[in-house]
Structures are given as structure tokens and as C-alpha cells.
Design a binder for these strands. Structure first.
Lengths: 343, 343
DNA sequence: TCATTTTTGTTAAACGTTTAATTGAATTAT
DNA sequence: ATAATTCAATTAAACGTTTAACAAAAATGA
């Protein structure tokens, strides 16, 4: 079995030193005469030479590898890409990174092993971290000193760049929309409310909208557990069965909203006839669904692209340690569709 | 800024040679006295030492890295995870691989750069390839001599293991189901029919079902372009607008089926009242949708898991070159829901 | 007791790159 | 004609591991 060609093979074939080969490989062709450059290119081609990134990574201390981290729920069993929201972001991130010669390591993160491991093991050049994690996680993250872009978190730390949206505003928008349509008993269905997480902010926005409308905030109306279709379904049934006075629900993710609608329906409540629902995200499902989901749109693809761009910018700057952390915010709009009925 | 601890630091701290450290790191503790093992563990812990996989990869010629390759459509712009079918498989693959200490590089594959590149550059231990590619792609693939599992392709080659389903049977099942319900003018909406691809087989099954029922196969009834919601939508409109005699459509992917339904609806045809639709895959959307999609179910999660397991088995066997290629097939069932109406 | 085997440890080469330092030749300047 | 500079190429160390080969000490067997 033929072994893979190494830089030495190329050097020998071309009749030059490995250094020469390395120079042309790294675009420092000025170090080498045009003649030799040509010979080397021929050799590379003839031997089907492809550089070994592990070796390169060792000496350059740069791997051209980026980690993309997606949270997993408590039980550690939720599929990392269950929510199409993540799929869309990851797809866009992968595309952009690939265009710039980076590869992407996709990983969920489980409670046991720290994120640190993968980052150090693989000598990542950077990472994009989605969602929110225990505080200690970020402490570790800081230790590794690589460019990091946080998506959807409110961890303010000079060590991290962030891209996100104004979630408080989004929560406000959603709740306020329902209120304007005449609803007053508005449930909130959401994932666990964690400090510095998007859900917390949306929750705050929801409460502000209520307050401004002089609606008493009722803690019994918040259903807080996990961002999943299954939980939405559960909550939907609970609402239909136990809270007949509720006329509208705000789900902090479309995926959850769809579950809610299903749960409601199964307990005999039609949307929007009997009860209104508004979601958040505007995943592409939202418009496919029947009834089409009214929701707060964020530009998901753009979010992924921006995260990738931001990371690239830092990674490729001269001294990544010193580039000022940036924070990008994507605009938000209410998309009126079919799941909210004026009261 | 503190540098990362290396094995040398650990060795020095523990007062032993790097070899000793390496032995305990690699589970060869029998090479080392219990006393020293303890000292080394303490040193590792004290210094927060984490091994560098690039270096390890270099000498062991094994990277603990697996490539997961997803096809991109012609235009090279389709999101690799647009189809939740892929998301679900990838999620399951990632989980299983992570449990076994592997990391996953997720990549679309564009026309320009060959798959070979990433595989050699990164010294992948194995790869899972989804879907179907130009013939030359597989030739390259064979050159790299790493364990490969093909998902959803009919490339018969001793170099590859495969997991898939009986797509011809699936196509037959779907078409036959419609026929049994009394339909005779049945459209097929599908991605490009490529040799050795799943779509080709499903198409064959579709034709067999027609033949057995003595229905004339009409090429005008096959709408063949791409596996996307957008194309389904397009085809749905075309069918409604230009082929009023069609009473049922078989879409070879749920994602496409949902697009079809939407297109139909927008051209004034209701499903299933005016026209029936059956899909393929049973993505989780299928049951969430209204009307709930009748479809041919394959166990997607299981498919991902099996691919991962198969790959692990080969990668971890003594001599991967010699392990007999295996082919796994996942069973298929029709899931009757709400989008098919008897005629 | 001494030869043998086992245990525990170390040394150093190897993996495939990059790159600073060096060298010698060719060119330019004086 | 010679000194100074530029150009083109090479050498060799370094990156962080693993592991074969070796060595010394301890345990075992006769």
C-alpha cells in the first residue's frame, strides 16, 4: 500500500530542500526562484501531495480548526440539532468557515467533560459557543485564551465577543403584540430561565409589557422547563386542561410554540380560534406550519454568518489577544401570520 | 501568559521521564509502578495537563477525528442541514462518537475541493458519507484507505461499508399504498435521479408498483430536481396548475412533500381533499404538520447510530483494512396519517 | 550463591511540518 | 577590482507526543 506523500518526498522529487517546498506551500514564493517554484508545483501535483495539518498545527500552533458548541439539556440526551434554529446557524457557519479554509468540529457538551478538553486537545483556533452554560464553564473558557464568539448569551466579559439580539426587546415585542390584540391572560412557555441567558431577557421583556399595560404578573402562567417540542406539547396540554382563562401564549422558541399548539389541539383547543400563540425565532418551519405561526423574527442565517465573520476577523488579525471584543446585534421584527386572533 | 502544560512539564513536576507519563496516559500503567502512577496523576492534575492530539496524531497516525460529509446541491448554496433528516442523523452520530472519544468534523462538500483534501489533511480515522456524489469522488475516497461508511448510497465496493434502507421497496410501498387507495395518476416529486442514489431506487419501486397495477408510466408525471422545500413548492404549484388529472403525489422526501402541499394549497388545491400526498422519511416535522403527513418511515436516529457503530467497529478493530464490509438495512413502514384520501 | 526473569525506569528516534540562521553565489555599488 | 548587498537555497532545531530499545534493580528459581 502506497504511503501518503510527505513534504520530504516532494522535496526529493523536485530536487530541492523541504524548506523550499514549505515556502511555496505557504505563499512565500518570493523566497524561491520562479524555476524552482515550477518544479515544486510539478512535484506536488505528481505525488498528489497534501499537507498534514497535524504537523503544521504543532509547529505553527494553529490548527485551522474551529469548535462549534451546542448546549445539551440536563438529561444529556436531547439531540443537539433538534431545533432547526441550530441547524440553520451551523449550516451557515460551516459554509463561511469553509470558504476561509477552516474546518468545523461540531460538539455537544455534556456535563462530565469540560469544554476545555476539546479546545486544548485539538488546538482550536477559535470557537463559537451557542447558548448558556454554568458559570464555571466560562471560567474555563477564559483560560484557553483563544478567540471566542458567544451566540445568545449575556456574559459580559472582555474575553468574549458576542452576537445576539435584544432579547428583552423581543420578549417585550411579543407580549406587547398580544396585549395590543386585547389579550390579558398571557402564558409564557419557555426553557429554564438562567442568569445571562436569552430566556431570562425575554422573560423580563414579557414582564415589562405586562407592567406597562397594568396587567398583574401571575407566576402561575409561566411554564418553564426546556426548549423542546415535547415540552411545548406538555405545556400546551396543561394550559388547556388547567388554565381555561388563558387566551394567549408566548413561547420563547418556535419549536416550543409548535409543541404548544399541538398540545392545545389535543386537549380540544383550536389555534387561533380558542387561544392565540406567538413564537420566537421564525425558523423556516414557522411559515410552513398550518396555521402559519405568528412569531418574532430574527435573521438566523445572518446570525450564523456574523458569528463566523466576527470570529474570522479576530482569528486572522495580527494579535488576536488585543482585538477589542465586539458585540453585534441583529434586528427583530414581528411577523404576523395566523396564530394570533384579536380578542 | 501561562503556556499550556506539556508532557515534559508533567514529567518534570512528577520527577520522572516523559515516557513514564506517556505510559500512564495511554493506559499502559503496568509499565509503571503504582507509586509513580500516583505521582504522575497528581502532576497531571496540578498542572491541568491535557494532551495535544496533533502531536499524538502525528506519531500514532490516528487522530480520533471522524469526518461527516453532507452533500450540497449543484448551486453549492443549499444549507447542509436544511433537511431535518440530516440534522437528526448528525446529532445521533455526534453523540455516539463523542461517547467513544472521537470528535466530528462536519463538512459540506463543494465541487471544487475534493473530499480527499480534508481527509488527508486532518488524518481522519474514518468518515461517514451521506448521499451520493460523482463517480470520481468515490475513486478518490478509495485512495485514502480509511474506514468509510456510506449512508444512503448504492455504491457497491469492498472499500466501503454501508447503511441504508431498501429504497426500491420503499418506493414501491409508497406508490402501492396510493394505488390501493384507488389512485392511478400519481406524480413523483424528487431530487435529481442519480445512478446508485436512493432516489433512483425509489423511482424504480414507484415504476414497479405502477406496472404491477397495469398503470401506464407517464414520464410527464415525474418532477425531478432537488431535495428541498423550495422545489417541492414549485412542483406542487406546477401540478395544481398544469396537471389537473393528477390525484396523488409521492414525494421522495418529507421536506419535499411539505413543499408540495404548500404549493398545491397556494394554487387552490387542498390536501387531502383535492389531492393526496405521501412523503418519505418521517422526519419529526411530518407528524407536527397540519395535516399530518402520511409517509414511509425509516428510523432516522437508528440509521445515524448504526452508521456510527459500524464505523467505530471498523476503526477499533485490529486491522481495519481487513474487516469485511458490512451492509446494514433499516426496516420501513408506512405511517398512515392525514394526507392521503381514498378515491 | 548465582543465573534468570521480571519490574521499573530512561533514552532517543520518529512522526511531518515550519522557520530562524546560515551559506554561497550573483549582483550592484564604489 | 573589491566591498557590500541581494538573492536563492540549505541546514537543523523545534513543536508535543509515542514507543522501541536499552539498562539497572529487584525478585525468583536452582
Amino acid at each position: 500500500m502506497k504511503k501518503k506523500a510527505t513534504i520530504k518526498d516532494v522535496a526529493k522529487y523536485a530536487g530541492v530542500s523541504t524548506a523550499a517546498v514549505s515556502y511555496v506551500l505557504n505563499g512565500k514564493e518570493s523566497r524561491v526562484s520562479p524555476d524552482t517554484v515550477k518544479k515544486i508545483h510539478e512535484a506536488i501535483h505528481a505525488l498528489h501531495y497534501i499537507p498534514n495539518y497535524s504537523a503544521r498545527s504543532l509547529v505553527k500552533n494553529a490548527s485551522k480548526l474551529v469548535g462549534v458548541i451546542i448546549p445539551q439539556t440536563e438529561d444529556n440526551r436531547q439531540l443537539i440539532l433538534e431545533n432547526p434554529f441550530y441547524s440553520e446557524m451551523v449550516s451557515n457557519i460551516e459554509l463561511k468557515l469553509r470558504e476561509h479554509g477552516y474546518h468545523l468540529i461540531l460538539s455537544g457538551v455534556d456535563k462530565g467533560s469540560s469544554y476545555l478538553d476539546i479546545s486544548v486537545q485539538r488546538n482550536l483556533d477559535g470557537a463559537i459557543i451557542m447558548g448558556i452554560y454554568p458559570e464555571q464553564f466560562y471560567e474555563e473558557l477564559k483560560q484557553v485564551k483563544i478567540p471566542i464568539v458567544l451566540i445568545d448569551s449575556y456574559i459580559h466579559d472582555n474575553a468574549f465577543s458576542r452576537v445576539g439580539i435584544d432579547d428583552e426587546h423581543g420578549g417585550y415585542l411579543a407580549a406587547n403584540y398580544l396585549i395590543e390584540k386585547g389579550h390579558r391572560n398571557i402564558a409564557l412557555v419557555t426553557g429554564t430561565i438562567r442568569k445571562d441567558g436569552v430566556v431570562e431577557k425575554r422573560f423580563l421583556g414579557y414582564k415589562r409589557a405586562l407592567r406597562e399595560a397594568n396587567i398583574f404578573y401571575n407566576p402561575d402562567y409561566v411554564f418553564e422547563q426546556s426548549v423542546s417540542y415535547a415540552y411545548g406539547y406538555e405545556a400546551g396540554k396543561a394550559i388547556a386542561d388547567r388554565c381555561p382563562e388563558i387566551t394567549a401564549v408566548f413561547a420563547t422558541a418556535d419549536l416550543v410554540a409548535l409543541g404548544v399548539i399541538r398540545g392545545l389541539k389535543e386537549s380540544g383547543k383550536e389555534v387561533p380560534e380558542d387561544i392565540s400563540v406567538i413564537g420566537f425565532d421564525d425558523i423556516f418551519l414557522a411559515s410552513m406550519f398550518v396555521p402559519q405561526l405568528t412569531t418574532v423574527r430574527q435573521h438566523i442565517a445572518r446570525k450564523g454568518q456574523m458569528a463566523a465573520e466576527l470570529l474570522l476577523e479576530i482569528m486572522e488579525s495580527e494579535s488576536p489577544e488585543q482585538v477589542t471584543r465586539r458585540e453585534e446585534s441583529i434586528p427583530l421584527t414581528i411577523i404576523e401570520r395566523q396564530t394570533v386572533k384579536p380578542l
